[in-house]
Design a protein around this nucleic acid. Structure first.
Lengths: 233, 233
DNA sequence: CGACTAATTGATCCAGTTCAATTCATGTGG
DNA sequence: CCACATGAATTGAACTGGATCAATTAGTCG
């Protein structure tokens, strides 16, 4: 829970209760790892568009998708957040996006106000939050590029490569992906229809680049070819 | 120039040289308005992909476009920066984007390191920089949605509405837009070809929604209809 | 004027959408 | 345990919005 931080952001109090030095302790991930935890079932919302940006979240388990919805029913998934990802950062107004689980998730969170307070005492925390936001921005720019300029096969290949890289970072097998999202989710993320995603994956299977049977698990057979198709730079 | 800030970020020194209070003075826009100024001709680069993020910029005059380039020659314009817009913010690594003028521009800038230093002394400045970045992120999410989910006419209509709103904010006529960018630029921004942009504008003209003759100046004749087409929410 | 860049417009093409049918996986209650 | 409902995925067929290729016009500057 948040017991390591008094409601007034008392620095001395904080130090006493921790074995590590304050310097190594006051960082964003550490704060979030000590935050409250909450379990969500399938398709549950962590927050929706218009909710105040009260908390900063970190995925402990499962996947969260951040999306924007249009009146016409069109949905743009802006980001998939996997284990370890931080989301909910913002200027402090209302959320422009909704955050929803796929099959369910465990999420840790800390009140944004507490982080703000802490950051005034520990500038490094502020810097870290800032860097996290800047990385989110850079990733989104890259994603815009893919959605705006690339063909279906390039988008899908790129998506698979991204998942593979993430797996590698997490120490999991980079050649076997457990797609936790539906074809519709992938489509709404890549700016394609679910049929096009399905067809494109089939194309990749026929090319011998990937293999899959139940659709939720994909083996990357030819990573070189896949990266060539993804062709991102 | 940067004379208001000593190289060590000396607060006392800073106060002495200014008539306003330190509180009202140390904000991002004020810092940038006192930053160095630089003039750029047409199609000149302020920075390119890979350059270190050394400075933070603010457009004093003209338009800057931020874009990403692919080896195949495809270009995604991520943002148009108009008078008063701040750009170049980032995590402190290298620029992922290139920044180029259209017809030329005057730009003021301050070293990122100076802002960082100042922010440690003036937390409000840090907060402001953070908010600026968060707003950039929110705008980009909105733009991704438009590029990912909308038709050509919706994208173009939305683009015109955005320009109109910007005009209104700047105290200029919201019903007469001076398009400073080419059809190609607009296309690369909206994920369309220049021909589609041209055809779409013609369509809007035939519908009586807009009017134009030389192509670089557009009158919005039916704002209600335009917003209906833009249909953003 | 001539050279150049931007814009328009036409004709054709095709990648991806749309509509629709079938298969598959999973679970649920009788 | 099977019958059946349900949601997800695949696949087919036809369509279309936007891309591509190409030609013309228009504006601008030396």
């Amino acid at each position: 829970m948040l017991s390591i931080v008094s409601s007034t952001g008392d620095k001395a109090n904080f130090r006493i209760r921790n074995t590590e030095t304050a310097h190594s302790q006051v960082n964003l991930v550490a704060q979030l790892e000590r935050g409250l935890i909450r379990n969500f079932g399938a398709k549950e919302h962590v927050f929706v568009t218009g909710d105040p940006q009260a908390n900063v979240y970190r995925v402990a388990e499962g996947v969260i998708c951040l999306y924007k919805l249009a009146p016409g029913g069109k949905r743009q998934i802006v980001r998939f957040c996997f284990k370890g990802d931080i989301f909910g950062l913002g200027a402090g107004g209302d959320h422009a996006l909704s955050a929803q689980t796929l099959h369910g998730a465990r999420v840790r969170y800390v009140a944004a106000s507490i982080l703000t307070q802490l950051a005034t005492v520990h500038p490094r925390l502020g810097t870290e939050i800032y860097r996290t936001l800047a990385e989110e921005l850079a990733a989104l720019q890259e994603h815009l590029f893919i959605v705006g300029q690339r063909t279906a096969i390039e988008r899908v290949a790129n998506f698979l490569v991204s998942l593979s890289q993430r797996n590698a970072e997490q120490g999991e097998d980079p050649l076997v992906l457990a797609l936790p999202m539906t074809r519709l989710d992938i489509g709404d993320y890549l700016g394609l229809t679910l049929e096009t995603v399905s067809r494109t994956l089939t194309k990749l299977r026929l090319k011998g680049v990937v293999d899959f049977h139940q659709g939720s698990q994909i083996a990357l057979l030819d990573m070189g070819k896949l990266e060539e198709l993804a062709d991102v730079q």
